[in-house]
Every structure is written in C-alpha cells, then in structure tokens.
C-alpha cells in the first residue's frame, strides 16, 4: 500500500459527523482534527471534504453558520442537527458491526 490509505467509501460522512458532535467547526478544522486524532494516518483531501460537507448539509444532517474564526476572519462553521445526531448514532452502530465482522474474519479465517 503505497499511498496514504484512502478512506473507506462512506466512512468520511461518519468521521465528519463524529468530529462535529463535540463542537461546531469549519472545514479546515474538521480536516485537521481528523488528521490529528488518527495520528496522521487519515488525510482528508479537500476534493472529498467539501463535496461531503455540502452533501450532508443538503441532507439536513448538519447546518452551517458564518461566524468569526480564531484568526478573526469570517468562516463557515458546521454543526450537527438533531437528525444528524440520530444519523451519527446509526452510522456508528453500523460501523461497529461492520468492523467487528471484518475483524472476526481477519482473525479467524
């Protein structure tokens, strides 16, 4: 595996929702946060991040608000909606089930 590992299809939504569950953040901060928490393993490309954010917003899972950032500039802050919180729960459960299953197969088979 030469390239830094691509995110598993569909998991980016989960990561974004999880990151936003703590506090509202702008896109740059979301990317940095995922990168940092994962110990620099997960690199979120801008090309995936912004389309994903806009898609989640269209779905009504996150909402956006323009606010002053830490540097004093206006930035677009995303936060979870109630529907997004539910979605996060179900996706987390889904992920747990999926990864457990994969782990089982990898270990046992």
């Amino acid at each position: 595996m030469g390239k830094p590992s691509d995110l598993v299809q569909g998991t980016l939504d989960l990561l974004i929702l999880k990151t936003l569950s703590i506090e509202a953040r702008h896109g740059w901060a979301i990317a940095k946060r995922i990168q940092m928490i994962s110990g620099e393993v997960l690199q979120v490309q801008q090309g995936s991040l912004y389309p994903a954010l806009h898609r989640l917003e269209q779905q009504g899972w996150i909402k956006a608000k323009w606010a002053e950032s830490e540097t004093g500039r206006l930035a677009k802050f995303y936060s979870l909606t109630a529907a997004g919180r539910k979605q996060l729960d179900s996706e987390t459960a889904n992920w747990a089930r999926l990864s457990d299953a994969i782990n089982l197969v990898v270990r046992e088979a």
């Binding site: 801008q46 912004y50 950032s69 677009k76």
Partner: peptide, 16 residues
Amino acid sequence: DQLQDELQFHLDQQIA
C-alpha cells in the same frame, strides 16, 4: 459566492 469564500478560507489557512 459563499462556497468561493469557504474554499478561499481553507486555502489561506493552509498558507498560514
């Protein structure tokens, strides 16, 4: 316009 601003912000953060 807002999308343009949002992306510009990201770019500026990276430069900083």
